[in-house]
Computed example of a mutant assay.
Amino acid sequence: MADDLTVTMNTDNRRFEAALGDETAFAEYQLAGDTITFPHTVVPDAFAGKGVGGKLVQAGLTYAREHKLWVKPTCAFFHAYIAKRPELHDLVHPDMREGLATP
């Protein structure tokens, strides 16, 4: 399912979105200077277990990398996703790298 899903950047609402019927999954973001903060992600039950949350994170991180932005993953979902993938740690703002190390 996630492979067929398109994630769009809704700049008016400051979030990355993926729609399925009447439902919308989204990851909110805040831009400030050279930093993008991801404070909140919502994945409705209709999307559960289908990789949609991961696709939202990937879209947000791709945007950050393309625009040379530091990432502040204050959302627990974003933080957990990044923590499991050391190749993404370089995107994380130095002030937030503690706790990313995987056991």
Rank of each mutant, 00 (worst) to 15 (best):
M1I: 09
M1H: 08
M1Q: 03
A2V: 14
A2D: 15
D3I: 08
D4K: 14
D4E: 14
D4R: 14
D4G: 04
L5E: 07
L5D: 05
T8S: 13
T8F: 10
N10Y: 12
T11Q: 14
T11M: 08
T11W: 02
D12A: 15
D12N: 11
N13K: 15
N13S: 11
R14L: 06
F16R: 01
E17L: 00
A19T: 12
L20N: 05
G21A: 01
G21L: 02
D22N: 09
D22I: 02
T24A: 10
F26R: 01
A27F: 01
A27Q: 06
E28G: 00
E28R: 08
Y29D: 02
Q30M: 10
A32M: 07
G33K: 03
I36F: 07
F38N: 03
H40G: 00
H40N: 02
H40A: 00
T41A: 05
V42P: 01
V42W: 03
V42A: 05
P44E: 09
D45F: 03
F47L: 06
F47G: 05
A48S: 06
G49N: 11
K50D: 00
G51N: 07
G51Q: 08
V52H: 04
G53N: 06
G54S: 15
K55W: 09
K55H: 12
V57L: 06
V57T: 12
Q58I: 15
Q58H: 14
A59G: 06
G60P: 05
Y63H: 14
Y63R: 03
A64G: 11
E66T: 07
H67I: 10
H67Q: 15
K68C: 10
K68Q: 15
L69D: 02
V71R: 01
K72N: 04
K72F: 01
K72T: 10
K72E: 13
K72S: 05
T74L: 13
T74N: 06
T74A: 08
A76P: 04
A76Q: 10
A76N: 04
F77T: 09
H79G: 00
H79N: 06
H79A: 08
Y81W: 14
I82P: 09
I82Q: 06
I82F: 10
A83R: 15
K84M: 12
R85M: 09
R85F: 12
E87D: 14
L88Q: 12
L88P: 11
L88S: 12
L88W: 12
D90C: 05
V92W: 13
V92S: 13
P94H: 13
M96N: 09
R97N: 07
R97I: 06
R97M: 11
R97P: 06
E98A: 15
E98P: 00
E98Y: 02
G99R: 02
A101Q: 07
A101H: 01
T102N: 07
T102A: 08
T102G: 03
P103L: 08
P103V: 07
P103Y: 10
